Simulated scan of single mutants.
Amino acid sequence: MDELTKVTHIDNVKLSEDKRSVVILDQTQLPNRTVYLTLGSAEDIYDAIFELKVRGAPAIGICAAYGIYCLAAAAKTDDFEKFYMQFKKDKEYLDSSRPTAVNLSWALNRMEGVVLANKEKPVSEIISLLKTEACEIQAEDIRMCRAISEYGLSLIKDGDGILTHCNAGPLATSRYGTALGPLFLGKERGMEFKVFADETRPLLQGARLTSYELAKGGLDVTLICDNMASLVMKNGWVQACFVGCDRIAANGDAANKIGTSGVAILAKYYGIPFYVLGPTSTIDMDCATGEDIRIELRDENEIKEKFYSEPMALKEVKCYNPAFDVTDHSLIAGIVTEYGICRAPFNESFQEIFRKKRENRL
Protein backbone atom coordinates (compact mmCIF):
# COMPACT_ATOMS: atom_id res chain seq x y z
CA MET A 1 0.00 0.00 0.00
CA ASP A 2 1.55 3.33 -1.06
CA GLU A 3 1.53 6.48 1.08
CA LEU A 4 -1.39 8.06 -0.82
CA THR A 5 -3.58 5.00 -0.26
CA LYS A 6 -2.66 4.98 3.43
CA VAL A 7 -3.77 8.60 3.73
CA THR A 8 -6.98 8.44 1.70
CA HIS A 9 -8.15 5.21 3.32
CA ILE A 10 -7.35 5.94 6.96
CA ASP A 11 -9.68 4.36 9.54
CA ASN A 12 -10.39 7.45 11.61
CA VAL A 13 -13.84 6.32 12.85
CA LYS A 14 -14.95 2.68 13.14
CA LEU A 15 -16.65 0.18 15.39
CA SER A 16 -14.55 -1.88 17.78
CA GLU A 17 -14.07 -5.58 17.03
CA ASP A 18 -16.84 -6.54 19.48
CA LYS A 19 -19.16 -3.91 17.90
CA ARG A 20 -19.89 -2.36 21.30
CA SER A 21 -17.64 0.73 21.22
CA VAL A 22 -16.51 3.42 18.80
CA VAL A 23 -12.82 3.62 17.92
CA ILE A 24 -11.48 6.97 16.69
CA LEU A 25 -8.14 8.39 15.68
CA ASP A 26 -7.48 11.21 18.17
CA GLN A 27 -6.94 14.20 15.89
CA THR A 28 -5.72 16.36 18.78
CA GLN A 29 -2.57 14.20 18.92
CA LEU A 30 -1.61 14.70 15.28
CA PRO A 31 0.80 15.19 13.60
CA ASN A 32 3.32 14.00 16.18
CA ARG A 33 1.50 10.98 17.64
CA THR A 34 -0.95 8.44 16.23
CA VAL A 35 -3.32 7.55 19.06
CA TYR A 36 -6.58 5.60 18.81
CA LEU A 37 -9.27 5.97 21.48
CA THR A 38 -12.06 3.56 22.39
CA LEU A 39 -15.30 5.34 23.30
CA GLY A 40 -17.72 3.28 25.35
CA SER A 41 -19.88 5.72 27.29
CA ALA A 42 -22.07 8.67 26.33
CA GLU A 43 -19.62 10.94 28.15
CA ASP A 44 -16.69 9.53 26.16
CA ILE A 45 -18.46 10.14 22.86
CA TYR A 46 -19.60 13.62 23.86
CA ASP A 47 -16.12 14.64 24.99
CA ALA A 48 -14.50 13.24 21.83
CA ILE A 49 -16.77 15.41 19.68
CA PHE A 50 -16.62 18.50 21.89
CA GLU A 51 -12.86 18.34 22.39
CA LEU A 52 -12.29 17.88 18.63
CA LYS A 53 -10.73 14.46 19.02
CA VAL A 54 -13.05 13.58 16.17
CA ARG A 55 -13.88 16.51 13.91
CA GLY A 56 -15.01 17.38 10.42
CA ALA A 57 -18.75 17.43 9.80
CA PRO A 58 -19.03 14.01 8.06
CA ALA A 59 -16.75 12.29 10.61
CA ILE A 60 -18.75 13.78 13.48
CA GLY A 61 -21.95 12.40 11.95
CA ILE A 62 -20.43 8.94 11.52
CA CYS A 63 -19.11 8.96 15.09
CA ALA A 64 -22.51 10.03 16.43
CA ALA A 65 -24.29 7.29 14.46
CA TYR A 66 -21.96 4.59 15.70
CA GLY A 67 -22.07 6.11 19.18
CA ILE A 68 -25.85 6.13 19.53
CA TYR A 69 -25.95 2.55 18.23
CA CYS A 70 -23.41 1.43 20.86
CA LEU A 71 -25.36 3.15 23.62
CA ALA A 72 -28.57 1.53 22.40
CA ALA A 73 -26.86 -1.86 22.27
CA ALA A 74 -26.10 -1.51 25.97
CA ALA A 75 -29.81 -1.21 26.81
CA LYS A 76 -30.93 -3.34 29.76
CA THR A 77 -34.58 -3.52 28.80
CA ASP A 78 -36.86 -5.23 26.29
CA ASP A 79 -39.60 -2.64 26.82
CA PHE A 80 -39.76 -0.27 23.85
CA GLU A 81 -40.95 2.78 25.82
CA LYS A 82 -38.12 2.49 28.32
CA PHE A 83 -35.65 1.83 25.53
CA TYR A 84 -36.81 4.84 23.54
CA MET A 85 -36.78 7.11 26.59
CA GLN A 86 -33.09 6.32 27.15
CA PHE A 87 -32.37 6.59 23.42
CA LYS A 88 -33.86 10.10 23.33
CA LYS A 89 -31.86 11.13 26.38
CA ASP A 90 -28.60 9.90 24.84
CA LYS A 91 -29.44 11.44 21.46
CA GLU A 92 -30.14 14.88 22.92
CA TYR A 93 -26.97 14.72 25.02
CA LEU A 94 -24.75 13.86 22.06
CA ASP A 95 -26.51 16.43 19.86
CA SER A 96 -25.55 19.19 22.30
CA SER A 97 -21.81 18.58 21.88
CA ARG A 98 -21.34 20.74 18.74
CA PRO A 99 -24.19 23.08 17.72
CA THR A 100 -22.96 24.28 14.31
CA ALA A 101 -22.17 21.09 12.37
CA VAL A 102 -25.49 19.94 10.92
CA ASN A 103 -24.23 16.41 10.22
CA LEU A 104 -24.34 15.71 13.94
CA SER A 105 -28.08 16.27 14.28
CA TRP A 106 -28.70 14.85 10.79
CA ALA A 107 -27.11 11.52 11.68
CA LEU A 108 -28.78 11.32 15.09
CA ASN A 109 -32.19 12.16 13.63
CA ARG A 110 -31.70 9.51 10.97
CA MET A 111 -30.89 6.93 13.64
CA GLU A 112 -33.97 7.97 15.62
CA GLY A 113 -36.03 7.50 12.47
CA VAL A 114 -34.96 3.85 12.40
CA VAL A 115 -36.16 3.41 15.98
CA LEU A 116 -39.54 5.00 15.36
CA ALA A 117 -40.12 3.21 12.06
CA ASN A 118 -39.61 -0.16 13.78
CA LYS A 119 -41.17 0.41 17.18
CA GLU A 120 -43.43 -2.62 16.80
CA LYS A 121 -40.40 -4.90 16.52
CA PRO A 122 -38.42 -6.39 19.43
CA VAL A 123 -35.80 -4.09 20.93
CA SER A 124 -33.04 -6.55 19.98
CA GLU A 125 -34.08 -6.29 16.32
CA ILE A 126 -34.17 -2.48 16.50
CA ILE A 127 -30.62 -2.51 17.84
CA SER A 128 -29.51 -4.67 14.92
CA LEU A 129 -31.19 -2.27 12.49
CA LEU A 130 -29.40 0.67 14.14
CA LYS A 131 -26.05 -1.01 13.55
CA THR A 132 -26.94 -1.55 9.88
CA GLU A 133 -27.98 2.10 9.53
CA ALA A 134 -24.80 3.43 11.15
CA CYS A 135 -22.68 1.30 8.81
CA GLU A 136 -24.68 2.57 5.84
CA ILE A 137 -24.12 6.20 6.92
CA GLN A 138 -20.38 5.58 6.72
CA ALA A 139 -20.67 3.69 3.42
CA GLU A 140 -22.67 6.56 1.97
CA ASP A 141 -19.98 8.98 3.13
CA ILE A 142 -17.34 7.00 1.23
CA ARG A 143 -19.44 7.10 -1.96
CA MET A 144 -20.22 10.78 -1.36
CA CYS A 145 -16.57 11.73 -1.01
CA ARG A 146 -15.68 10.02 -4.27
CA ALA A 147 -18.51 11.76 -6.12
CA ILE A 148 -17.64 15.19 -4.68
CA SER A 149 -13.99 14.59 -5.63
CA GLU A 150 -15.00 13.88 -9.23
CA TYR A 151 -17.11 17.03 -9.53
CA GLY A 152 -14.50 19.15 -7.78
CA LEU A 153 -11.72 17.88 -10.02
CA SER A 154 -13.67 19.16 -13.04
CA LEU A 155 -13.18 22.72 -11.75
CA ILE A 156 -9.36 22.70 -11.80
CA LYS A 157 -6.58 21.68 -14.14
CA ASP A 158 -3.15 20.13 -13.89
CA GLY A 159 -0.63 22.54 -12.38
CA ASP A 160 -3.15 24.82 -10.65
CA GLY A 161 -2.51 26.44 -7.29
CA ILE A 162 -5.23 25.75 -4.72
CA LEU A 163 -5.70 27.49 -1.39
CA THR A 164 -7.63 25.77 1.39
CA HIS A 165 -8.62 26.73 4.92
CA CYS A 166 -9.06 24.36 7.90
CA ASN A 167 -9.25 20.62 7.20
CA ALA A 168 -11.66 18.78 4.93
CA GLY A 169 -9.63 15.75 3.93
CA PRO A 170 -9.77 12.04 4.81
CA LEU A 171 -9.43 12.77 8.53
CA ALA A 172 -12.66 14.76 8.43
CA THR A 173 -14.58 12.13 6.48
CA SER A 174 -14.12 8.45 5.56
CA ARG A 175 -12.31 8.53 2.21
CA TYR A 176 -10.61 11.24 0.14
CA GLY A 177 -12.38 14.11 1.92
CA THR A 178 -14.48 16.90 0.50
CA ALA A 179 -12.35 20.02 -0.13
CA LEU A 180 -9.17 17.95 -0.41
CA GLY A 181 -10.80 15.05 -2.23
CA PRO A 182 -10.30 16.44 -5.76
CA LEU A 183 -6.60 16.96 -5.04
CA PHE A 184 -6.07 13.38 -3.86
CA LEU A 185 -8.11 12.03 -6.77
CA GLY A 186 -6.16 14.15 -9.23
CA LYS A 187 -2.90 12.94 -7.72
CA GLU A 188 -4.01 9.34 -8.28
CA ARG A 189 -4.52 10.22 -11.94
CA GLY A 190 -1.09 11.76 -12.36
CA MET A 191 -2.06 15.41 -11.95
CA GLU A 192 0.03 17.85 -9.92
CA PHE A 193 -1.19 20.76 -7.84
CA LYS A 194 0.50 23.32 -5.61
CA VAL A 195 -1.57 23.60 -2.45
CA PHE A 196 -1.41 26.48 0.02
CA ALA A 197 -2.80 25.51 3.41
CA ASP A 198 -3.80 28.21 5.86
CA GLU A 199 -2.65 27.26 9.37
CA THR A 200 -6.21 28.01 10.61
CA ARG A 201 -5.87 29.63 13.99
CA PRO A 202 -6.44 29.17 16.87
CA LEU A 203 -6.64 25.36 16.72
CA LEU A 204 -4.29 24.97 13.75
CA GLN A 205 -6.22 22.29 11.89
CA GLY A 206 -4.62 23.43 8.66
CA ALA A 207 -1.12 23.09 10.08
CA ARG A 208 -1.65 19.92 12.11
CA LEU A 209 -4.01 18.02 9.82
CA THR A 210 -4.26 19.40 6.27
CA SER A 211 -0.53 19.82 5.69
CA TYR A 212 -0.02 16.40 7.33
CA GLU A 213 -2.47 14.66 4.99
CA LEU A 214 -1.19 16.38 1.86
CA ALA A 215 2.49 15.83 2.67
CA LYS A 216 1.90 12.16 3.54
CA GLY A 217 -0.01 11.79 0.27
CA GLY A 218 2.87 13.16 -1.78
CA LEU A 219 1.18 16.42 -2.79
CA ASP A 220 3.06 19.70 -3.07
CA VAL A 221 1.87 21.61 0.00
CA THR A 222 3.03 24.93 1.43
CA LEU A 223 1.84 25.90 4.90
CA ILE A 224 1.11 29.61 5.37
CA CYS A 225 -0.11 31.76 8.24
CA ASP A 226 -3.70 32.85 7.84
CA ASN A 227 -2.67 36.46 7.26
CA MET A 228 -0.49 35.47 4.30
CA ALA A 229 -3.38 34.40 2.05
CA SER A 230 -3.78 37.85 0.50
CA LEU A 231 -0.14 38.03 -0.61
CA VAL A 232 -0.21 34.50 -2.03
CA MET A 233 -3.30 35.42 -4.05
CA LYS A 234 -1.79 38.73 -5.17
CA ASN A 235 1.28 36.87 -6.42
CA GLY A 236 -0.93 34.92 -8.81
CA TRP A 237 -0.15 31.58 -7.17
CA VAL A 238 -3.78 30.62 -6.51
CA GLN A 239 -6.25 29.66 -9.25
CA ALA A 240 -9.04 28.42 -6.95
CA CYS A 241 -10.02 28.19 -3.29
CA PHE A 242 -11.50 24.92 -1.99
CA VAL A 243 -13.03 24.79 1.50
CA GLY A 244 -15.34 22.45 3.35
CA CYS A 245 -18.44 23.35 5.33
CA ASP A 246 -20.30 22.51 8.52
CA ARG A 247 -23.72 23.90 7.61
CA ILE A 248 -25.14 25.52 4.48
CA ALA A 249 -28.26 27.66 4.63
CA ALA A 250 -31.04 27.48 2.03
CA ASN A 251 -29.79 30.67 0.33
CA GLY A 252 -26.22 29.33 -0.02
CA ASP A 253 -24.61 31.05 2.98
CA ALA A 254 -22.04 28.58 4.32
CA ALA A 255 -20.63 28.14 7.82
CA ASN A 256 -17.08 26.84 8.03
CA LYS A 257 -14.09 27.20 10.34
CA ILE A 258 -13.41 30.74 11.53
CA GLY A 259 -11.43 32.66 8.92
CA THR A 260 -13.15 31.15 5.89
CA SER A 261 -15.22 34.26 5.23
CA GLY A 262 -12.08 36.38 5.10
CA VAL A 263 -10.55 34.02 2.52
CA ALA A 264 -13.69 34.34 0.39
CA ILE A 265 -13.58 38.14 0.54
CA LEU A 266 -9.93 38.14 -0.55
CA ALA A 267 -10.67 35.68 -3.36
CA LYS A 268 -13.48 37.92 -4.62
CA TYR A 269 -11.13 40.92 -4.67
CA TYR A 270 -8.48 39.05 -6.64
CA GLY A 271 -10.95 37.40 -9.02
CA ILE A 272 -10.29 33.88 -7.79
CA PRO A 273 -13.22 31.41 -7.75
CA PHE A 274 -14.14 30.30 -4.24
CA TYR A 275 -15.77 26.87 -3.95
CA VAL A 276 -17.46 25.18 -1.01
CA LEU A 277 -17.39 21.37 -1.08
CA GLY A 278 -19.67 19.27 1.08
CA PRO A 279 -22.37 16.60 1.09
CA THR A 280 -26.05 17.40 0.69
CA SER A 281 -26.44 16.41 4.36
CA THR A 282 -24.79 19.72 5.29
CA ILE A 283 -27.44 21.72 3.42
CA ASP A 284 -30.08 22.78 5.93
CA MET A 285 -33.16 23.84 3.99
CA ASP A 286 -34.88 24.72 7.27
CA CYS A 287 -32.22 27.39 7.83
CA ALA A 288 -33.13 30.36 5.63
CA THR A 289 -29.86 32.33 5.78
CA GLY A 290 -26.53 32.38 7.53
CA GLU A 291 -28.04 34.67 10.14
CA ASP A 292 -29.98 31.65 11.41
CA ILE A 293 -26.87 29.50 11.94
CA ARG A 294 -25.88 29.21 15.57
CA ILE A 295 -22.14 29.86 15.93
CA GLU A 296 -20.32 27.91 18.60
CA LEU A 297 -18.23 29.97 21.04
CA ARG A 298 -15.25 28.18 22.54
CA ASP A 299 -12.93 28.63 25.51
CA GLU A 300 -10.83 31.81 25.35
CA ASN A 301 -7.77 29.87 26.48
CA GLU A 302 -7.60 28.23 23.04
CA ILE A 303 -6.36 31.64 21.86
CA LYS A 304 -4.16 32.57 24.80
CA GLU A 305 -2.62 29.29 25.92
CA LYS A 306 -3.15 26.29 23.67
CA PHE A 307 0.00 25.13 21.85
CA TYR A 308 2.13 27.65 23.79
CA SER A 309 4.61 26.78 26.54
CA GLU A 310 3.39 29.86 28.41
CA PRO A 311 0.43 32.25 27.91
CA MET A 312 0.66 34.67 25.00
CA ALA A 313 -1.63 37.25 26.62
CA LEU A 314 -2.26 38.54 30.12
CA LYS A 315 -4.78 36.61 32.18
CA GLU A 316 -7.11 39.62 32.41
CA VAL A 317 -7.25 40.11 28.63
CA LYS A 318 -10.64 39.14 27.22
CA CYS A 319 -10.90 36.92 24.14
CA TYR A 320 -13.61 36.34 21.59
CA ASN A 321 -13.34 32.82 20.18
CA PRO A 322 -16.07 31.83 17.69
CA ALA A 323 -15.38 28.43 16.13
CA PHE A 324 -16.98 29.33 12.78
CA ASP A 325 -17.97 32.20 10.55
CA VAL A 326 -20.46 32.38 7.70
CA THR A 327 -19.43 33.08 4.11
CA ASP A 328 -22.08 35.05 2.25
CA HIS A 329 -23.50 33.24 -0.76
CA SER A 330 -22.56 36.18 -3.02
CA LEU A 331 -18.88 35.28 -2.52
CA ILE A 332 -19.29 31.62 -3.49
CA ALA A 333 -18.71 30.58 -7.13
CA GLY A 334 -20.16 27.13 -6.58
CA ILE A 335 -21.14 24.57 -3.96
CA VAL A 336 -19.92 21.10 -4.90
CA THR A 337 -22.08 18.21 -3.69
CA GLU A 338 -22.18 14.49 -4.42
CA TYR A 339 -25.02 15.13 -6.90
CA GLY A 340 -23.44 17.98 -8.81
CA ILE A 341 -22.25 21.58 -8.61
CA CYS A 342 -24.74 24.16 -7.39
CA ARG A 343 -24.51 27.76 -8.55
CA ALA A 344 -26.47 30.91 -7.78
CA PRO A 345 -29.33 31.30 -7.20
CA PHE A 346 -28.59 28.55 -4.71
CA ASN A 347 -32.13 28.10 -3.39
CA GLU A 348 -33.09 27.00 -6.91
CA SER A 349 -30.06 24.85 -7.64
CA PHE A 350 -30.46 23.12 -4.25
CA GLN A 351 -33.96 22.08 -5.25
CA GLU A 352 -32.58 20.48 -8.42
CA ILE A 353 -29.83 18.72 -6.46
CA PHE A 354 -32.33 17.29 -3.97
CA ARG A 355 -34.52 16.13 -6.86
CA LYS A 356 -31.53 14.20 -8.22
CA LYS A 357 -30.89 12.79 -4.76
CA ARG A 358 -34.45 11.50 -4.47
CA GLU A 359 -34.24 9.84 -7.87
CA ASN A 360 -30.67 8.51 -7.74
CA ARG A 361 -29.16 7.16 -4.56
CA LEU A 362 -25.37 6.96 -4.68
Score class of each variant (00 low, 15 high):
K6M: 07
K6T: 12
H9G: 14
I10F: 13
D11Y: 13
K14A: 02
E17W: 04
E17L: 09
D18L: 02
S21G: 00
V22I: 07
D26Q: 02
Q27G: 07
L30Q: 14
N32M: 11
T34I: 15
V35W: 11
V35L: 11
Y36L: 08
E43G: 00
D44M: 07
Y46F: 14
V54F: 10
V54C: 08
G56C: 06
A57M: 04
A57G: 04
A59R: 04
I60E: 11
C70N: 06
A72K: 03
A72T: 04
A73Y: 06
K76C: 00
K76D: 14
K76T: 12
D78K: 12
D78G: 07
K82L: 09
F83K: 03
F83N: 02
Y84D: 13
F87P: 01
F87C: 04
E92W: 00
S96D: 14
V102H: 13
L104A: 05
W106G: 00
L108I: 06
R110M: 07
M111E: 09
V114W: 03
A117Q: 12
N118F: 06
K119F: 08
P122I: 08
P122L: 12
I126P: 00
I127G: 02
I127E: 05
S128W: 11
A134F: 00
C135R: 10
A139S: 14
D141S: 10
I142M: 13
R143H: 09
R146W: 13
K157R: 15
D158M: 08
L163V: 03
T164K: 00
H165I: 10
C166D: 10
A172K: 04
T173I: 04
S174D: 03
S174H: 13
Y176M: 14
A179G: 07
L180D: 06
P182N: 10
P182K: 02
G186R: 03
K187H: 14
V195L: 03
A197Q: 03
D198P: 00
R201S: 08
Q205M: 10
G206R: 01
A207V: 02
L209P: 08
E213D: 02
K216N: 13
L219P: 01
I224H: 01
D226N: 02
G244E: 04
I248H: 05
I248M: 07
I248Y: 07
N251D: 09
G252I: 02
D253C: 05
A254D: 07
N256F: 12
N256H: 15
G259V: 08
G262Q: 15
L266E: 12
K268W: 13
Y270N: 08
G271E: 05
F274L: 06
L277S: 03
G278F: 04
G278I: 11
T280A: 06
T282Y: 02
I283N: 02
D284Q: 07
M285K: 14
D286R: 08
D286C: 06
A288E: 15
A288R: 12
G290C: 11
E291I: 08
D292N: 14
D292V: 07
I293K: 01
L297K: 14
L297M: 15
L297I: 15
R298W: 05
D299W: 06
I303P: 01
E305F: 01
E305A: 10
F307T: 05
S309P: 00
P311F: 10
K315H: 11
K315L: 11
V317W: 11
C319M: 14
A323S: 09
F324C: 06
D328L: 05
H329V: 04
V336Q: 03
E338P: 01
G340S: 05
I341H: 01
C342W: 07
K357T: 08
R358I: 12
N360D: 11
